[in-house]
Amino acid sequence: MMKNVINWFEIYTSDFNRAKQFYKDVFKCDLIDIPMNSDRHSQMQYALFRKNENKFDLNGALVKIDEAKPGIGGTLVYFATEEITAELGRVETAGGKIIRPKLDLGEFGFIALIQDTETNLIGLRSEK
C-alpha cells in the first residue's frame, strides 16, 4: 500500500477565528484548538483539522504565529474532495474567492484553485 508523501500541512493565518470559520464552512469539518502553553509559543494559535463529512483525513492545522505569514506564493496544498463543485459553491459565501474554476485534467481528475480569507491560495482536487 502506498502512503501519501505529504503527511502534514499548516496553513498560516492573520485572523485565526475568521480562517477557522472559512474552513469549517467550505469543507464541513471541525477544527480543534490546541493550547500552546510554553512562553516561547505564547502568541501562537493552533487548530487541528478533523475528518470532514466525506470522511477525508485532513492531516494538518491552521496556525497563527508571528514567524509565518499567510498569502499567495507559499506552498500550495490541495484538499481532496468528492466532487469539486460542492466546495466551490461554498467558497464565496464563506468569504473566499475562486481563482481558477474546475479544470479537467483527463485521467488525473479535476482541480480548482481558491483563495481563503487569509489570502492563502489552496487547491481542490477530485476524481470526478
Rank of each mutant, 00 (worst) to 15 (best):
M1T: 10
K3P: 13
N4Y: 12
N4M: 15
V5Q: 14
W8A: 11
E10V: 08
I11S: 02
I11T: 03
I11H: 02
Y12N: 13
T13W: 01
T13D: 02
S14R: 06
S14W: 04
D15K: 07
D15F: 06
F16W: 11
F16H: 12
F16Y: 13
N17H: 15
R18T: 04
R18L: 03
A19T: 10
K20T: 11
Q21R: 05
Q21V: 04
K24N: 03
K24G: 01
D25G: 02
V26T: 04
V26W: 01
C29K: 14
C29W: 15
C29M: 12
L31P: 10
I32W: 15
D33W: 11
I34F: 11
P35C: 09
P35R: 09
M36C: 05
N37T: 09
S38P: 00
D39F: 01
R40P: 04
H41L: 10
H41C: 11
Q43F: 15
Y46I: 07
A47V: 00
L48W: 05
L48A: 07
F49L: 05
F49R: 01
R50F: 06
N52G: 08
N52E: 08
N54M: 05
N54F: 04
K55W: 14
K55I: 13
F56R: 06
F56H: 09
L58H: 05
L58N: 03
L58E: 03
L58T: 03
G60L: 09
A61I: 13
L62P: 02
V63E: 06
V63Q: 07
V63P: 06
K64A: 12
I65C: 00
D66Q: 10
D66F: 09
E67H: 11
E67L: 11
K69H: 07
P70W: 01
G71R: 05
G71M: 06
I72T: 13
G73Y: 08
T75A: 14
T75F: 12
T75K: 15
L76Y: 12
A80Y: 13
A80R: 15
T81R: 02
E82Y: 09
E82Q: 11
E83A: 10
E83Q: 10
E83V: 09
E83K: 10
I84C: 03
I84E: 01
T85F: 04
A86R: 07
E87P: 03
E87V: 05
E87G: 04
L88R: 08
G89Y: 05
R90V: 14
R90H: 15
R90C: 10
R90E: 14
V91D: 04
V91P: 03
E92H: 07
A94F: 06
A94P: 05
G95C: 08
K97F: 03
I98T: 03
I99C: 09
P101G: 10
P101H: 12
K102I: 15
D104C: 04
D104R: 04
G106Y: 00
G106N: 00
E107A: 08
F110Y: 00
I111G: 01
A112T: 12
A112W: 09
L113F: 13
L113T: 15
D116Q: 03
D116S: 04
T117G: 02
N120S: 00
N120M: 00
L121E: 07
L121C: 07
L124P: 10
L124I: 12
R125P: 09
S126G: 14
E127Q: 13
K128A: 11
K128S: 10
K128C: 10
